[in-house]
Design a protein around this nucleic acid. Structure first.
Lengths: 127, 127
DNA sequence: ACTTGACCTTCTAGTCACTGGAACCTTTAT
DNA sequence: ATAAAGGTTCCAGTGACTAGAAGGTCAAGT
């Protein structure tokens, strides 16, 4: 299968798939004309990658998860450790953003937002 | 004032302040020896910048906010529009992360996390 | 046979907001 | 006189793509 069809099936742009090959996440075969030739196994792997990325795993996490996915003797504890760690990071990020949003929405609430120059948002940003 | 002292006062690394000069956010004076020389006004401006950045405004947003901050005739509506827009973006990001976290914590909950290879997380990532 | 258009290839460079490091200069304290 | 701690510039790297250029290939229609 050619790269664009694969992209459509797994929901990734062709550019991204080429990039994943560049950094060694997948190694598609090559047809006689030099085109990349993807098997169902490649598609399966890319689906896994796309899903892991969409859950916010870093490309390096994905590399580790892929290795575990392909290792029939893996311990589920290893996978769980990566996932839990990532979950903790996401939750930290959410908390940080919620702090930001709270501060910001206080500022926005206090600002008349009219034609006058007086602005509590700018005052708040002064520290 | 020298760059490191300024950095300590506003909570930014010297490198970052130099970078802000590079991209035209501030223009400190120069002493005879070539060192940057920051006035209280520069410190004030950097404090504003640091605070806006810590609330997640992009550097370009900061540029706009700075211009409004320094414009005595600004309309508070202009500031409010930037802030509201940014707030909406943060909230979108939070929602996305919460989706991720929910999916991920389901997967983590279902995984025994022991020495066996059977792993619902990897299964979940297959799509 | 020829052309058109859609696909494929590689390569370079840009994104964002810094950050690290090298090579070198100035100030301050001992 | 020297050493440490600061300052300067410039170049390169981060993460995960993305845009674009220059060119090769393929399938369909005339």
């Amino acid at each position: 299968m050619n790269i664009k069809d694969v992209g459509n099936r797994v929901g990734l742009p062709a550019k991204t798939i080429r990039y994943y090959e560049d950094i060694g996440l997948i190694t598609p075969d090559r047809a006689a004309n030099g085109y990349r030739d993807f098997s169902e196994a490649h598609v399966h792997k890319l689906t896994f990658l796309a899903r892991a990325r969409s859950l916010g795993f870093s490309v390096d996490d994905c590399r580790d998860l892929l290795a575990l996915w392909e290792d029939q003797d893996r311990a589920s504890a290893d996978v769980r450790a990566i996932a839990k760690d990532h979950l903790a990071q996401i939750e930290t990020k959410i908390a940080g953003l919620q702090d930001m949003a709270a501060t910001l929405s206080d500022l926005v609430r206090d600002c008349a937002g009219d034609g006058r120059p007086d602005c509590p948002i700018l005052k708040g940003l002064e520290g």
